[in-house]
Computed example of a mutant assay.
Amino acid sequence: MSSISNVTVVIPCHNDGAYIMEALNSILNQTLKADKIIIIDDGSDITTKKVLEKIICENVEVVFQVNKGVCKARNKGISLAKTKYILNLDADDYFEPTFIEKAVKYLDANKGVGVVGCFYKTLKNNKIEKEIIKPLGGGVSNFLVKSNGLGNSLFRKICWEQVSGYDEEMVHGYEDWEFWISILKNGWQMHIIQEPLFTYRIKKISRDRVAVKNYDLELREYIFKKHKQLFIDNLDSFTNQVIYRNHILRRTELKTKMSLDYRLGCLILAPLRFLKRIVS
């Protein structure tokens, strides 16, 4: 394989000074080197800025801006890229050394594929979890109910151009999901390398967690309204997926209720509920 990867890696960074070097080193240590690495500092604190200011590497560019959000940071970095392929990487996550080589090889050989992701593991409390997360990828029909891809993936810059980049209105999250929908509904496919070549860091407080807790309904409604015709055109698939997910949730709820901890909790609380009825 040529040593020219035609890849620019874009790393938005907001107050991730504790992790950015691990993320950056995971790219510098790839078996196929990126042509360019662009770090967009999105209004970080002084501690993170000091870490970024110490980065001196020939193919690494650090761009400082006031805080504008991850979508604008990514769009800024991608707009500066001059390569055919773009790899997103959040500043607190990292790739295994062979990801770029394997992903580029697949994109080069498969012209109908716009995005390449992979299986991944999670890092929690500085410990790698045993479970391997296996997104499906595929076509747009696999993305109607949830994102079946990996936010940190390699994609063709032309795909980004076709959809006018990340939706900068999505300041509260789920922008990766919407971005993949926008790309895949144009007929592109997402390929998933069936190896855990990426590690996603789970933090106590993170943008993803806040999105799920506080903005899930709002963001889902936004995606549905923006791509309403897509959901109408794929109504049967969308309905079947919703029914299946509801079925899984009901089974999980029932399993929880039947668990020993739940039953013990009910026994412990029973006297309190009895007293409450008497007092009432």
Score class of each variant (00 low, 15 high):
Met1Thr: 12
Val10Phe: 04
Pro12Ala: 08
Asp16Ser: 08
Gly17Pro: 01
Glu22Ile: 05
Asn25Gly: 07
Asn25Pro: 03
Leu28Tyr: 11
Leu28Trp: 10
Asn29Lys: 09
Thr31Asn: 14
Leu32Cys: 12
Asp42Leu: 09
Lys50Val: 05
Leu52Thr: 02
Asn59Ile: 14
Gln65Ser: 09
Gln65Leu: 08
Val66Arg: 12
Asn67Pro: 01
Gly69Val: 06
Ala73Met: 02
Ala73Leu: 01
Lys76Gly: 01
Gly77Phe: 01
Ser79Ala: 15
Ala81Lys: 10
Thr83Phe: 03
Asn88Pro: 12
Asp90Arg: 01
Asp90Phe: 14
Ala91Val: 06
Asp93Lys: 09
Pro97Met: 12
Glu101Tyr: 07
Ala109Lys: 15
Asn110Trp: 05
Lys111Arg: 10
Val113Arg: 04
Gly114His: 09
Val115Cys: 09
Cys118His: 05
Lys121Glu: 11
Thr122Ala: 07
Leu123Glu: 03
Ile128Asn: 01
Glu131His: 12
Pro135Thr: 01
Gly137Ser: 05
Ser141Gly: 12
Phe143Ser: 00
Val145Gln: 05
Leu150Ile: 10
Gly151Cys: 06
Asn152Gly: 07
Ser153Trp: 05
Ser153Arg: 08
Arg156Asp: 04
Arg156Ala: 05
Lys157Asn: 11
Ile158Asn: 15
Ile158Met: 06
Cys159Asn: 09
Glu161Tyr: 10
Glu161Ala: 14
Gln162Thr: 10
Val163Cys: 05
Ser164Trp: 01
Gly165Ser: 02
Tyr166Trp: 04
Met170His: 00
Gly173His: 05
Tyr174Cys: 06
Tyr174Val: 09
Glu175Tyr: 08
Glu175Phe: 14
Trp177Asn: 03
Phe179Thr: 05
Ile181Gly: 01
Ser182Gln: 13
Lys185Ser: 05
Gly187Cys: 11
Leu197Arg: 01
Ile202Phe: 11
Ser206Pro: 07
Arg209Lys: 15
Ala211Trp: 02
Asn214Asp: 14
Asp216Tyr: 15
Leu219Ala: 00
Leu219Asn: 06
Lys225Ser: 02
His227Pro: 02
His227Asp: 03
His227Ala: 00
Leu230Ala: 03
Phe231Thr: 00
Asp233Met: 04
Asn234Cys: 04
Leu235Arg: 03
His247Ser: 13
Ile248Ala: 05
Leu249Met: 10
Thr252Gln: 15
Leu254His: 09
Lys255Ser: 13
Lys257Trp: 10
Met258Tyr: 08
Ser259Cys: 08
Ser259Asp: 12
Tyr262Leu: 08
Leu264Trp: 13
Gly265Glu: 11
Cys266Ala: 12
Leu267Asn: 04
Leu267Gln: 07
Pro271Leu: 00
Phe274Gln: 07
Leu275Met: 14
